[in-house]
């Protein structure tokens, strides 16, 4: 393999129900910076059926080019047809970097394809950068339950593949005037690729907003005292257009459901506001929220480690403070 034959930053644009996944837009946002550092272009690889609208969305979010493979067999994700199509795209276009979201699809497709094309794959990255000396992609990820970070390189094989955690990179705002090329990659997917049969698709949608999609998270910990007190967090979250989340302790206590959990074994979030109420701030929790833009913490214990991560820390009784926060927000909003 001559690694100099491999050029460009490619992002696998994941679609489900003909809608581009938010993590793919986040990857375009970060991929743009990486492509600039590498002096190259950013390409989105879109596998699906009836792709035209989605391709436009990808251009608006920063892709210089979209490679679209449009085939009925790619409408709903199945491992083999996707692995076949993505491998063909790699063989044909020879990207230097290929990024995928660390989703239930990306974490299935990524390893299958990396094994097929014989290259390295770094899982669940939280940081990507270019080594100025040699142009290698530096892929940083947490290991040992978030206790240490490791930077991984793939110096002798291409593409340099990585899956990236949803919610850790920033998408660019959509630009309706953005120009880009949409190229249809004609591909005959052999019928033998359909080696499984999907008998049924069962929805398992959470009733509440996904915590990774929320711009505002009002988050509770053990210090909330009871499950009922989360109602107060809901009220503030509703006013600010966000949702509630929690530490692992509250999930274990049954106060909240696992889909609310922020942290190493839960979700990584980076909202505009993360308000930590009665959360002590164990390292596993901090790993999941410390990149939030604004962190406000309320805790009775002034030695709680959450205060080291907070932009604004309040030592006090949250049961007294939160109703007043709610009231003041409502007053300000009413005045607007």
């Amino acid at each position: 393999m001559n690694i100099n034959d491999y050029k460009g930053v490619f992002v696998f644009a994941q679609q489900v129900d003909n809608k581009v996944a938010s993590v793919s837009l986040e990857l375009l946002g970060r991929g743009k910076g990486i492509a600039n550092d590498m002096n190259t272009t950013l390409t989105a690889v879109l596998l699906g059926h009836n792709n035209d609208e989605m391709a436009k969305t990808l251009i608006q979010h920063g892709a210089d080019k979209v490679i679209s493979v449009d085939d009925p067999m790619l409408e709903v994700y199945m491992t083999e047809p996707y692995a076949y199509a993505l491998t063909k795209v790699i063989e044909n276009y020879k990207p230097s970097v290929l990024l995928l979201g660390a989703t239930a699809i990306g974490r299935d497709l990524g390893p299958r394809v990396s094994a097929r094309v014989h290259t390295g794959l770094t899982a669940d990255c939280t940081g990507l950068a270019i080594d100025e000396e040699n142009g290698n992609l530096l892929m940083t990820r947490p290991a040992f339950g978030g206790n240490i970070m490791a930077t991984i390189i793939c110096p002798a094989f291409r593409p340099q593949m990585a899956t990236v955690r949803p919610g850790v990179m920033q998408a660019l705002a959509a630009n309706a005037d953005a120009k880009g090329e949409i190229e249809k990659f004609e591909l005959e997917i052999p019928a033998s690729c359909k080696n499984v049969e999907i008998l049924e698709i069962v929805e398992n949608k959470p009733e509440r907003m996904n915590i990774q999609d929320a711009n505002v998270l009002i988050s509770g910990g053990r210090g909330m005292g009871t499950a009922e007190n989360f109602g107060q967090l809901e009220k503030i979250a509703d006013l600010l257009g966000g949702t509630i989340s929690s530490s692992r302790a509250c999930v274990d206590l049954g106060w909240t459901t696992p889909d609310r959990q922020v942290g190493q074994t839960g979700s990584t979030v980076r909202p505009n506001l993360y308000m930590a109420c009665g959360i002590s701030g164990q390292i596993q929790h901090l790993a999941g929220m410390e990149d939030s833009d604004l962190i406000v913490a309320i805790n009775k214990d002034e030695t709680a480690p959450i205060f080291n991560a907070a932009d604004v820390g309040i030592v006090g009784d949250l049961n007294a403070i939160l109703p007043l926060v709610e009231k003041k927000i409502a007053e300000i909003q009413a005045a607007k």
Binding site: L138, M149, I152, A287, E290, E302, A310, I314, G316
Partner: peptide, 21 residues
């Protein structure tokens, strides 16, 4: 294909302001 380039512990975020109203 992949190697560990370096490993490190995360630097904690710079402390903000803590108030005791």
């Amino acid at each position: 294909p992949t190697n560990v380039f370096k490993s490190f512990t995360k630097a904690p975020k710079a402390a903000g302001n803590v108030y005791k109203p």
